[in-house]
Design a protein around this nucleic acid. Structure first.
Lengths: 234, 234
DNA sequence: CAGGCATAAATTGTCAACAATAATGACCAA
DNA sequence: TTGGTCATTATTGTTGACAATTTATGCCTG
């Protein structure tokens, strides 16, 4: 039986649960899940009351959220939940393309054989999940992040891993939520993942990077199309 | 007469000089310039006393320094100035190669003609400065960052610009300081810059990215060589 | 009635004291 | 002497009050 342990995307869960840390996690979830709508004004005293903590730790949480670009802050004027416009989304996808392309290249160079096997097994799971649930694209989305996460880990580059996992993936989730339902891309995404896995298994750095970049820029083109259609209907 | 206005690398100098902001800038300079040695233990009360402010704003400054990876912090245990080892340097150069490669590609697509002309003029200045000062490599280093900064701006990608300018370039400076004197690379760097500028002027995205990546990975190879020699002599 | 200035309210920035946690060192026992 | 345990100390985490700044409100003037 192949390994079937899903890799959690929330890495640092073992940190001491300081108040600031907990507030950070809570607010982050609220923003990503859309409970705190984009553009919402953040008032420190209100949130502190809501979470039952003082303004000190809450401020620290806000600063951390600002650093991962979920909140924009203007000195003396307050902070708001970020509003993702098309411009910012493009920036994010471009950066992701560059970093994940590099990650794929490094993975092809460094990923241990057993992890490559495990990666392949993960894709088998995905295939099974797709044919079972048919249209359940949501499942595929989580799996999608799982696949990309594994490659980021395999790159053995801490900087790239932290920036992808700690910042870009969160924003990507918000992009997806915002652009509504993305048409059944599960099949094509899976086959692209397979090609990338093969390239890594063959230790073909060049190809792995190329395929990963095409995969991501393709995803962006689809999202952009949706955004344009939304905009046209206004 | 061509434009000779040097572009400052410290962008957001117009922010209200809040205490936290000032402390952040001061400590950042101290770390980059080596006044606060790598690995130094950071004690909040001491630093607060040193800068004549309270612990509140100082904590904010420390958190921001942690986010740009100049400080590492362990909850309840305190924080230290980062110690750059070979592993981390490699991570940084790999990330930089990916991001600046993408930036060069985007610059080739988007940079306005007059800015391209200005970029070329900047390289003329550098050439003059090199032949004048001969061995003054330091001058060239600042110019080097200036060149790369302009391309990051020309990419029109805010995420890439902020990460390069706000984080990676600072760390690169520390790398350079640590690896001591780098042998007269001014000439070869300049000629590589010229090639990149030409590729951008010809709107050759592919070539611009390729040359930029070679340029950076070449720089890393030299730095790594120096580090290995330092290590061997122990 | 419109526009600008002054005042008032709301919100963020800063501070000093208190509580909780981890590092230090002394003491005791094997 | 060494190893472990406990008290002490130093340092970080948290809090509520105060100061500075911005935004909102309403009045006055043209």
């Amino acid at each position: 039986m192949p390994e079937t342990i899903p890799v959690s995307t929330t890495e640092d869960a073992l940190e001491p649960p300081t108040l600031a840390r907990r507030a950070f996690d809570s607010i982050k979830s609220d923003i990503i899940d859309g409970e705190l709508a984009q553009g919402t004004k953040i008032v420190e005293s209100d949130l502190a009351l809501k979470y039952g903590i003082s303004r000190g730790p809450l401020r620290e949480a806000i600063h951390r959220l600002e650093q991962i670009k979920l909140i924009v802050r203007i000195p003396h004027a307050g902070s708001r939940v970020v509003t993702l416009d098309a411009r910012m989304m493009q920036d994010i996808y471009e950066a992701r393309e560059a970093l994940e392309g590099m990650a794929a290249r490094l993975a092809a160079r460094l990923m241990p054989d057993n992890e490559i096997a495990s990666l392949s097994a993960l894709l088998d799971q995905h295939e099974a999940a797709i044919s079972e649930t048919e249209g359940k694209a949501y499942f595929q989305r989580e799996g999608d992040i799982d696949f990309h996460y594994r490659i980021a880990v395999a790159s053995q580059n801490q900087w790239i891993l932290e920036n992808l996992n700690g910042e870009l993936y969160q924003l990507i989730r918000m992009c997806r939520r915002q652009s509504g339902q993305i048409p059944s891309r599960a099949q094509t995404a899976l086959s692209q993942h397979r090609q990338i896995a093969v390239a890594i298994a063959q230790r073909d750095e060049e190809l792995a990077e190329l395929l990963m970049r095409r995969h991501i820029s393709g995803a962006w083109k689809i999202v952009r199309k949706i955004l344009e259609d939304q905009h046209d209907s206004n």
